[in-house]
């Protein structure tokens, strides 16, 4: 399994496209939107906007790892690597785990860099560091778990890209990452609670300002873990079919 983790990491580190999606684009968006929404505001008025955009865009952009995960699995399937690995002593479930773990590393590092960027450039507060770190782990588990499910269940890369856009952008819109929830209709505010983006955003924002109560922290963590476990279960259910499509 370690061999797969190392190969996958090496492959992704060399992939400039992935660096663009995971770091460059989120930083550009963060800078752009903060400058647009804070223009003409004083520092005190700007702070809540920045405090919403930095964690909001972090949560939104971690979802795009699902495209890379889908591409990787479909490519392995199409070029015969999955079938070839099935002929080695490695169990198919260790292969699945080996394809999952590297993306956890990548997403965690992505979250750390994006939040650090917010701290260094915009001086966002980081009051409850422990909660932030734990939430970053759980968010990583959640998004890669859903990514794994998507990669296993879709049959083409295009389908994976389309569904990722729906999940990432649709979830960001409904989950209040683009505009304050208070400005949205009541119905949408209710629906937003069914999106992982809403919980991730709330958790980070409150932990950054130091207002995240322990009860809320557990509630948010449980919801995000639930989404991640759901993704993992869906991936496990779909995996035999994925192998069947690959190996016959």
């Amino acid at each position: 399994m370690n061999a797969i983790i190392k190969l996958e990491l090496k492959k992704n580190i060399q992939d400039r496209g992935m660096i663009f999606w995971t770091l460059v684009l989120p930083i550009l968006f963060t800078v752009l939107f903060i400058s647009v929404f804070t223009s003409g505001l004083n520092e005190a008025e700007s702070q809540p906007v920045i405090l919403s955009i930095v964690p909001g865009y972090t949560v939104m952009f971690v979802f795009f790892i699902m495209i890379t995960m889908t591409e990787s699995m479909i490519k392995d399937q199409n070029n015969g690597l999955v079938a070839r690995i099935a002929s080695t002593p490695l169990s198919s479930y260790l292969y699945l785990l080996g394809k999952w773990v590297p993306y956890m590393y990548i997403v965690f590092i992505q979250i750390v860099i994006l939040l650090l960027f917010g701290k260094v450039v915009y001086n966002v507060p980081i009051e409850q560091l422990f909660y932030i770190i734990v939430l970053a782990f759980i968010l990583t588990f959640m998004v890669t778990g859903l990514g794994l499910a998507l990669a296993i269940l879709v049959k083409t890369t295009n389908m994976g890209i389309a569904l990722t856009q729906v999940l990432a952008l649709g979830g960001a819109l409904i989950g209040g990452l683009w505009m304050p929830l208070e400005m949205m209709p009541e119905l949408l505010q209710t629906i937003s609670r069914f999106t992982p983006q809403y919980w991730g955003h709330q958790g980070f924002r409150e932990a950054m300002t130091g207002t995240l109560a322990m009860g809320d922290f557990f509630k948010i963590s449980s919801v995000l873990l639930g989404f991640g476990i759901l993704g993992f279960i869906l991936a496990l259910i779909g995996y035999p079919n994925f192998l069947k499509r690959t190996t016959g």
Binding site: A3, K6, L7, D15, G80, L81, A83
Partner: peptide, 18 residues
């Protein structure tokens, strides 16, 4: 296998190690 089942974005050595 009949397909060239290699990870083409890395080196020959990396594939053999893998």
């Amino acid at each position: 296998p009949q397909e060239i089942a290699l990870e083409e974005t890395v080196t020959a050595q990396d594939n053999l190690v893998f």
